[in-house]
Computed example of a mutant assay.
Amino acid sequence: MKIFIAGHRGMVGSAIFRSLSKSQDHQIITATSTELDLRDQSAVNDFINKIKPEVIIDAAAKVGGIMANNTYPWQFLYDNVAIQTNLINAAHKNDVEKFIFLGSSCIYPKLAEQPLREDSLLTGPLEPTNEWYAIAKITGVKMCEALRKQYGRSYTSLMPTNLYGPGDNFDLETSHVLPAMIRKFHDAMVSGHSPVTLWGSGTPKREFLHVDDVASAVLHVLNGSMDHSLYNLGTGKDLSIKELAEMVQGITGHKGEIVWDSSKPDGTPRKLMDVSRLGNEGWTYSIELEEGISDTYDWFLENVENFKEVKITD
């Protein structure tokens, strides 16, 4: 099976690449951003027409945390809409058999009933701190749904909960909560266990999924015939940000004080996924959170001098 992985150098894409590369049944095709600008519609269509893949996995996106979304709304909206539109359109025009679109749980309304079900989509307002990214991903979900409905395409959207793992972004200006915590606690630990200041109250609850479990789910969809166009992807279990901080603190060995800055936003009060739809089709996660954070911290320590930083430009 000839498979094109878009975004193979990112945290999610690299996990999918590692997983699929273990099998000799697949021919994996990749392209760096210098080789193919996914925001260029003509270039993307020409590329897909040339390589003629049977499957496209879209793990390409501009991603970041609350600060990055608030600071760069245009880039988060435009770049993500352009990337996914070009890939989905090229897949359809070139008769690609399967398309797997990776999104985010932020597509669901801020105050949607917990746990978040797939049918909660577009039933209420989004969380303002990441609405630009969310609107882009909702567009991708609906494109895949429209092609499935009108043309019978086997195009599937997977909406993961908060992700983490090897290859994560540890830049404190643009990272998500878990890698930011790892970086902060590590830096404070090596500087004499100085206090660590974290945003908000610590009361919101979050769910986390290791990227290797995402790769496992992608493989499951790749090999199956899915009944729906949209699936949540997570563990079905969450914990408070305070509990997460204490877990990361223990794993990094930090002994100092944790200070909560309540002047900073908490974001969505809770984001727990209902994962029963994909569970009913035979998939479940396998990596528990403490094990996964320890694995991620080991990777961080191995790469602490050159870890990935996301630079957002105009």
Score class of each variant (00 low, 15 high):
residue 293 I to W: 00
residue 165 G to V: 04
residue 85 T to G: 07
residue 151 Y to Q: 12
residue 124 G to H: 09
residue 108 Y to V: 04
residue 28 I to L: 15
residue 32 T to I: 02
residue 3 I to T: 06
residue 128 P to I: 13
residue 134 A to Q: 05
residue 141 V to D: 03
residue 80 N to G: 04
residue 289 L to R: 04
residue 266 D to C: 07
residue 285 Y to C: 04
residue 249 Q to A: 10
residue 149 K to W: 01
residue 302 E to C: 11
residue 72 Y to H: 15
residue 215 A to K: 05
residue 31 A to D: 03
residue 293 I to M: 02
residue 282 G to A: 05
residue 303 N to T: 10
residue 49 N to D: 13
residue 203 T to K: 15
residue 295 D to T: 10
residue 310 V to Y: 09
residue 85 T to K: 07
residue 53 P to G: 12
residue 132 W to S: 10
residue 56 I to Q: 07
residue 305 E to H: 02
residue 293 I to S: 01
residue 135 I to W: 02
residue 215 A to Y: 01
residue 178 L to C: 03
residue 233 L to F: 11
residue 88 I to A: 08
residue 152 G to K: 00
residue 179 P to M: 01
residue 20 L to S: 00
residue 182 I to L: 09
residue 8 H to K: 01
residue 40 D to M: 03
residue 272 L to C: 06
residue 140 G to F: 11
residue 54 E to G: 15
residue 237 K to E: 15
residue 140 G to W: 08
residue 244 L to Y: 10
residue 98 K to F: 10
residue 170 F to T: 02
residue 275 V to I: 15
residue 41 Q to P: 00
residue 157 S to A: 13
residue 241 I to T: 12
residue 313 T to L: 10
residue 132 W to G: 08
residue 188 A to E: 00
residue 11 M to P: 13
residue 149 K to Q: 04
residue 243 E to T: 14
residue 164 Y to H: 08
residue 148 R to P: 01
residue 250 G to Y: 08
residue 77 L to Q: 05
residue 228 H to S: 13
residue 253 G to Y: 05
residue 233 L to Y: 09
residue 132 W to E: 04
residue 70 N to D: 04
residue 294 S to M: 06
residue 88 I to T: 13
residue 214 V to E: 06
residue 293 I to T: 04
residue 202 G to T: 10
residue 240 S to N: 11
residue 165 G to H: 03
residue 30 T to Y: 11
residue 120 S to E: 08
residue 27 Q to Y: 06
